[in-house]
Design a binder for these strands. Structure first.
Length: 803
RNA sequence: GCCGUUGUGGCGGAAUUGGCAGACGCGCUGGACUCAAAAUCCAGUGGUGGCAACACCGUGUGGGUUCGACUCCCACCGACGGCACCA
């Protein structure tokens, strides 16, 4: 009887369901292990072959840890708010809730067909009111703590989808999602003060077991920079300009100043003669998109305001310019320019013929700014100092003369949290006609998203909720009328805390029980794509730290260990896409080869973290191996083969114990590909053996079970064991079985292998050297030469150095 | 431009601490089984030379350290990802 994957996989999936094999208890004295997948957006496309990769990895770890005696929490859920559903609803006239629910059913069915050991009792859905009640609750807490505020902001506006995008969602001036060109537009927005947590978000990265690349991306994104604020008086005016600089040591080299065109002081300092030029320049800048101001335009522009600033350190008059290479949104929107030692200032100074004054020795070349370290010159009390010392002394001087102070700045901006969309969590706020704003009372949460049969753009830039009058308009007991907030939350909201809800998914009076949170947090393993390096992972860390400050969660960080799975590419080494025709549908693979084959193949392709191309031959190879495992134990009639026996002739002792050790070690380190290859070696050896000791076969099937759980359950029973392998304790190995009495040592001459010999394991150095010198081929290479040195490592090799 | 990752047979990849490069799989070649084929089982398979023993070359390139380097150091080249006037 051949290996019939369909029948076997259905049988065991039903068994796990019927027996609630993977339902997780909160009350146990076992150590815990919490493994989470980045939950998917249930798109209409269904599952992609990339999904099972990460899911299989966490599933293998979960099954392994169960067998190792851990209480494992391994849940799944749906990140189900999002723009595609809204767009589809607008097109078809359906409600997003209805087909989102269909999509979820489809996703769940597909995921279940992969044999993943989720506790489905804990399934969560961000669009479920009992879930988003708590998303809204967190928002209210942020509001109460002053971390959620309204602001008129220049936002990234997608004019076609009519949505506001976060900076992170804009790539090369286009919407990451729609590809539409993004414009600047001023809109009232809800903003979360993530910058209040900037320092902690940088500092706490150090203790996390995350890929260095991701940590570095977050550090760069937050962009902490240390420098100084310096105050410049404006000549003949009652105004003071504050600039930010990381190089206060070059203050003596400042030759001009620049304000961002939007800077609030521009109007008050501009001279009559320059008024028109400045107005023209600002008008020209306002018409430009962000893309045109940055990426497309490397050529510097600007105009002189006619005003002068006074350098506090030496009283020099510096012309004040406006230029768009200075950003209003960073620092104070004003800089002191030191063209001798800053590339951008240098370029600007060259173009507009401004003075260049070196204050650091080392810049011999007049064609570029010298940005390196060196001895300070032309700098009065800083002369002769190096960069670090000069920075410290300059700051001391500024502080002593009330002309400035040390200052830390961040690139990170506050998080624009509102979207002009229907299909998101309603922001639980009411704007009253008396001008006040209030939260929806906590006991009235969740504020339900009203059911809408037909979604239409409001046309005003507001979300479609603005059309739903019944929902929109409210009246207070005292007769004052109000209007609900029509903005909804971004998709990042629900995904910023979902891993907490799995811990206590049905709690209706708390986000989650603190005792349960204390037991389960942190997440021990979090697996997902690297595309979430700064978006989701930064927001989730921010909310988590906020909840930590509130005392809601017991840990400072949510995810102790993060692993990014690599991408599965098409067979042509390119990213899978419909247009390239290289998409592989997991349903087809599961049907034709089975979920176990898909799992084994995706884990065997290469290291989890690496991108690797799909191969049709590869998947058949994995299937062939599972067939081989089946045939090793089961004969053509479907009976256990006779050579599976209780006697042990000993020929598999070493390879069996080696395999247990290697697979165990590899699993601890998530090296799934090499674990599988070791099991292949074992099977190859087992095929050559006349007798297969049943204890070894049991142990091998246990090693296989995390990878190919259905097949393993089936063979486990056929080997005469009681049903269900999931909680049988993991096999152990015997160190003494790993070593032979004899070892093969190699003989080298000048580091090249010239011979080998099998010798007793405990041979001493002298005997090894004697054996080496006696070797015929070694003789050929040392004869007639002087032996300079002999290196002998017992049990490994002898190296004879001759000349 | 800056930051990060990475480079090994025809292909995916292994080599955990500086110690036999290429485990395992795919592909290919040969053999067994078969009327034949497929499937399966067994064996071989980095390149060059040689009947062979074996020799020489070989981990992106060029140098270096070392008895010994895929592994460590320096310089460079290519691929991928991120950031990109952040003062």
């Amino acid at each position: 009887m051949p290996y019939e994957h369909q029948q076997i996989e259905q049988k065991w999936q039903k068994f796990w369901d019927d027996n609630q094999t993977f339902a997780t208890s909160d009350t146990t004295d076992k150590p815990k292990y919490y493994a989470v997948d980045m939950f998917p957006y249930p798109s209409g496309q269904g599952l992609h072959v990339g999904h099972p990769e990460g899911y299989t990895a966490t599933d293998i770890m979960s099954r392994f840890k169960r067998a190792k005696g851990f209480n494992v929490l391994h849940p799944m859920g749906w990140d189900a708010f999002g723009l595609p559903a809204e767009q589809y609803a607008m097109k078809t006239g359906h409600n997003p809730a209805d087909f989102t629910s269909q999509n979820i059913d489809h996703f769940r069915e597909q995921i279940k067909s992969l044999g993943l050991s989720y506790d489905w009792n804990r399934e969560i859905n961000t669009t479920d009111p009992s879930y988003y009640k708590w998303t809204q609750w967190i928002f209210e807490k942020l509001y109460e703590k002053g971390l959620a505020y309204e602001s008129n902001m220049m936002v990234n506006w997608d004019p076609i989808d009519r949505v506001v995008l976060a900076n992170e969602e804009v790539i090369d001036g286009k919407s990451e999602r729609s590809g539409n060109k993004v414009e600047r537009k001023a809109l009232r927005q809800w903003v979360l003060k993530i910058t209040a947590y900037a320092d902690r978000l940088v500092d706490d990265l150090d203790d996390l077991d995350w890929p260095e690349a991701i940590k570095e991306q977050q550090r760069n994104w937050i962009g902490r920079s240390k420098g100084a604020a310096v105050f410049f008086n404006v000549d003949h005016a009652d105004a003071k300009i504050e600039v930010y600089t990381t190089r206060p040591d070059t203050l003596f080299g400042a030759t001009y100043m620049v304000l961002a065109p939007e800077h609030e002081l521009v109007d008050s300092i501009v001279t009559a003669e320059q008024k028109q030029a400045v107005a023209d320049y600002r008008a020209a800048i306002a018409a430009k998109s962000d893309l045109e101001r940055t990426d497309l335009n490397k050529d510097k522009t600007g105009v002189f305001t006619g005003a002068y600033g006074i350098n506090p350190i030496n009283g020099e008059k510096l012309p004040i310019w406006i230029a768009d290479y200075v950003l209003a949104s960073y620092g104070t929107g004003a800089i002191m320019a030191v063209p001798a030692h800053d590339d951008r200032d240098f370029e600007f100074a060259k173009k507009f013929d401004l003075a260049i004054k070196p204050v650091i020795a080392g810049g011999e070349n007049d064609d570029v700014a010298y940005t390196g370290d060196g001895v300070h010159i032309n700098s009065d009390f800083l002369d002769g100092l190096d960069k670090a010392t000069a920075i410290d002394q300059a700051i001391d001087w500024l502080e002593a003369h009330q002309a400035g102070h040390a200052q830390t700045n961040f690139r990170l901006r506050d998080w624009i949290f509102s979207r002009q969309r229907y299909w998101g969590e309603p922001i639980p706020v009411i704007h009253w006609e008396d001008g006040t704003t209030s939260l929806v009372p906590e006991n009235e949460l969740p504020l339900l998203l009203p059911h809408a049969t037909e979604l239409r753009p409001s046309g005003s830039g507001e979300s479609p909720l603005a059309n739903l009058t019944d929902w929109l308009e409210v009246t207070r007991d005292d007769g004052v009328k109000g209007r609900r907030e029509t903005n909804t939350m971004p998709q990042w909201a629900g995904s910023s805390w979902y891993f907490l809800r799995y811990i206590d998914p049905h709690n209706d009076h708390q986000l989650a029980d603190p005792e349960k949170l204390k037991y389960w947090m942190n997440v021990d393993l979090y697996v997902g794509g690297a595309e979430h390096a700064v978006l989701h992972l930064l927001y989730a860390r921010f909310w988590h730290k906020f909840l930590y400050d509130l005392g809601v969660v017991p840990t400072k960080e949510p995810f102790q260990k993060l692993v990014n799975q690599g991408m599965i590419l098409g067979a042509n080494h390119e990213k899978m896409s419909k247009s390239k025709g290289n998409v592989v549908n997991p349903d087809d693979i599961v049907r034709e080869y089975g979920a176990d084959t898909l799992r084994v193949y995706e884990m065997f392709m290469g290291p989890l973290t690496q991108s690797k191309p799909w191969s049709e031959e590869g998947i058949t190879g994995s299937r062939r191996w599972l067939d081989r495992v089946w045939r090793l134990l089961i004969d053509d009639e479907g009976q256990l083969r006779d050579h599976v026996t209780t006697v042990n002739p000993g020929d598999l002792d070493k390879i069996y114990h080696q395999t247990v050790k290697k697979v165990t070690d590899d699993l601890e380190n998530m090296r799934f590909n090499t674990a599988i290859s070791q099991m292949m070696v074992f099977v190859n050896d087992a095929y050559k053996s006349d007798a297969l000791p049943v204890t070894y076969m049991n142990g091998f099937i246990q090693l296989l079970a995390p990878f190919a759980p259905h097949l393993a359950e089936e063979l486990w029973v056929r080997l005469g064991n009681r049903e269900s392998i999931s909680y049988v304790s993991w096999p152990t190995y015997d160190d003494t079985k790993l070593v032979d009495d004899t070892v093969e040592i190699i003989f080298q001459v000048n580091g090249k292998v010239r011979g080998k010999a099998t010798v007793a394991r405990d041979i001493n150095q002298d005997d090894m050297i004697t054996a080496a010198k006696a070797d015929d081929n070694v003789q050929n290479f040392i004869m007639g030469k002087t032996v300079r040195k002999v290196i002998a490592i017992p049990g490994k090799f002898v190296n004879i150095v001759v000349s």
